[in-house]
């Protein structure tokens, strides 16, 4: 049996998640998080497709993991905007002067990001299938991919929440997205790292986006991801823990 306190906490979190969801359903967010990855996919495949040499796998199959991550990053960024809006308006004081669990406010925003990204990722994947993306991945491989994408979504959401809490304005809050997107481009997401010049290549092969991309790609295409699964999980679990702790510390300090 759940205690009354836990029940209340769950219902408060649900109410605040619904509220945060409403904030996520606006044109700006939908365009950035769903339309942009789809446009990118169209562009990479039909415009630059011929110019890029991505080895044996079909061009679209090579692109899809990177596009999915791109979509997740774009979707998760909005957590910083929503968190920052709350922190810089009077509403946070209203919530905190009410007898509700304080954790329900951040939890609501995190849940929203996860649900939103699950839907947008699915949508992008459907478009990819429509454009010719094919995979023979087994159920186990799919489950692993879903788990890893979920871990990445949670980690990016907490990174985003951290910057949203830290910044004094919405512009400042979402500025962190540029280095993150930069990391995605300097990885094997869209071009193989062995085509890059020395220093860039060394960086690309070391940073956390590359094992993530490689893992998702191998799971979907060759089924044998090997060590990279473990490396990916270590990287992103570490990022998740570090940024969620940091975010909660900033939250406590600011309220």
């Amino acid at each position: 049996m759940l205690t009354a306190r836990v029940k209340n906490k769950i219902s408060e979190t649900m109410v605040l998640t619904r509220r945060s969801m409403r904030h996520s359903l606006n044109i700006d967010t939908l365009l950035t998080a769903i339309a942009t990855p789809i446009m990118m996919m169209l562009m990479f495949v039909y415009v630059f497709g011929g110019a890029m040499d991505t080895g044996a796998i079909d061009h679209i199959n090579y692109m899809v993991p990177g596009i999915l991550l791109m979509g997740i990053v774009s979707g998760a960024i909005y957590t910083s905007v929503r968190v920052n809006n709350d922190m810089t308006s009077g509403i946070i004081d209203r919530f905190h002067s009410m007898p509700i669990a304080r954790s329900s406010i951040l939890t609501g925003h995190v849940m929203t990001s996860v649900v939103f990204n699950a839907f947008s990722t699915l949508l992008v994947l459907l478009v990819a299938l429509f454009m010719g993306f094919r995979t023979d991945a087994s159920i186990t491989a799919w489950l692993l991919v879903i788990g890893i994408l979920l871990l990445f979504t949670l980690a990016m959401t907490w990174v985003s929440a951290f910057f949203g809490l830290l910044a004094n304005s919405v512009e400042g809050a979402s500025a962190f997205s540029y280095p993150v997107i930069f990391l995605l481009f300097i990885s094997s997401a869209f071009v193989p790292t062995d085509t890059m010049p020395g220093v860039v290549r060394a960086f690309a092969e070391f940073q956390p986006m590359t094992p993530l991309i490689e893992t998702v790609r191998s799971l979907l295409m060759t089924e044998s991801a090997g060590d990279s699964v473990l490396i990916t999980i270590l990287w992103w679990f570490g990022i998740l823990i570090a940024f969620s702790i940091a975010a909660i510390q900033v939250y406590k300090r600011k309220t």
Binding site: E12, S89, G90, S97, M98, P99
Partner: peptide, 30 residues
């Protein structure tokens, strides 16, 4: 907190929701 409510110096309404939804949200949180 059970006894009080605060209407602070900066307006604490949710601009994305309707007036009715704002009130219902607070009611449900309570």
């Amino acid at each position: 907190r059970e006894k009080i409510s605060l209407t602070g110096q900066s307006t604490a309404v949710d601009p994305v929701l309707t007036g009715r939804e704002n009130l219902r949200m607070i009611g449900k949180l309570r």
